[in-house]
Simulated assay, not measured.
Amino acid sequence: MPEFSLLLLLAGGVFVLNAMPAFAPPTWMLLAFYALQQPGTAPLAIAGVAAVAATGGRLMLARSAQRISASRWMRPAMRANMHEVADAIKGHERASTLAFLAFAISPLPSNVLFLAYGLARAPLRLLAWPFFVGRFISYTVAVIGGAYAGRQLELQLSGLAGGIYFVVSQCLLLAGVWLFTRINWRQALRSRWLRWWH
């Protein structure tokens, strides 16, 4: 299959993984596998295609959370609480952009960030660009490092141990989103102490 077609398949896979709210395998695993199977492809090309697809998938996830926030499923009081977060982000755009960039470069899963961001209905442009840049950097490292490690070490994770860790971590992250919506952000942002929203 031509390299361009393979990159399109990769983009589709990355998009689907990043549009899922939870229980999607880490994108870097797919990229490392692709790099091992297609050693002639430039790492920057793989990282660029994956970063665009990942950003698109995460934005779709955030928009889904926005629709939930605007629906009757979210109480007006909780919706107003989430607006406090959005106002704080808009009021500190530069700091927010730098924080999102650092998060995107890190290996931390970003599904929770986009779910929380979407529920807050904050401007997606403040998250999209730093996420794309951060993921491009981290994916480049993942492609180069993953392919090298795979060739040199040929390590394989235990399927059972890896599966248990993955399920537990995703459940904890989803619980984190629920806790995010339960914080009284008006009080927290003004007093710098977290207070539960009732």
Rank of each mutant, 00 (worst) to 15 (best):
L108S: 08
L113H: 05
F166S: 07
G57C: 04
A54G: 01
L44C: 00
R125D: 11
A88D: 06
A62Y: 02
I164K: 05
L119P: 00
L126C: 02
A128S: 07
G146F: 05
W193S: 14
L8E: 03
L157T: 13
Y117K: 05
L17I: 00
A120R: 08
A22L: 11
N18P: 06
R58E: 15
A11E: 03
A47I: 01
R63C: 07
G134E: 04
A104K: 05
L127R: 03
L30M: 10
R151V: 12
R190K: 08
A149C: 04
N81Q: 03
L153S: 03
A77W: 02
S158Q: 11
G40Y: 12
G13Q: 01
C171H: 02
P21C: 09
R79E: 12
W185M: 03
T181I: 00
I89Q: 02
R58H: 14
L113V: 14
L155A: 15
G56H: 02
F100W: 08
W129Y: 01
V141F: 06
V177Q: 05
L126K: 03
R190D: 09
Q37P: 09
W185T: 01
S96L: 09
A142E: 04
L174G: 03
G12V: 01
Q66C: 13
A99M: 02
W193A: 15
A95G: 13
R94G: 10
N111T: 11
W197N: 13
A47E: 00
L113D: 04
A175D: 12
D87Q: 12
L6N: 12
L127A: 10
A188R: 01
A175Q: 11
S69N: 11
W196H: 08
P123A: 00
R94Q: 13
L172P: 08
P123D: 07
H92T: 12
N111I: 05
Q37V: 13
A19L: 12
R190L: 09
R79D: 09
E154C: 06
A47N: 08
P123I: 03
V16D: 01
A161Q: 14
W196P: 02
Q187N: 13
R121Y: 06
V177N: 05
F23D: 01
L8V: 14
A175T: 06
R63E: 13
M1T: 11
P26D: 07
S138C: 04
I144T: 01
W185Q: 00
P43E: 07
H92C: 10
A116C: 15
S110K: 12
S158E: 13
G134Q: 07
L173A: 08
A47L: 00
I164C: 09
M29W: 14
S5T: 12
A104G: 06
I164S: 09
S138Y: 04
L59R: 04
L127C: 10
A70N: 10
W178L: 14
A147C: 05
W193Q: 15
L108K: 10
A35M: 10
L115Q: 12
L174P: 07
I46W: 09
L160N: 13
A99N: 08
A86E: 10
S138D: 01
G48K: 04
N81V: 00
E84D: 05
Y34I: 11
Q38C: 12
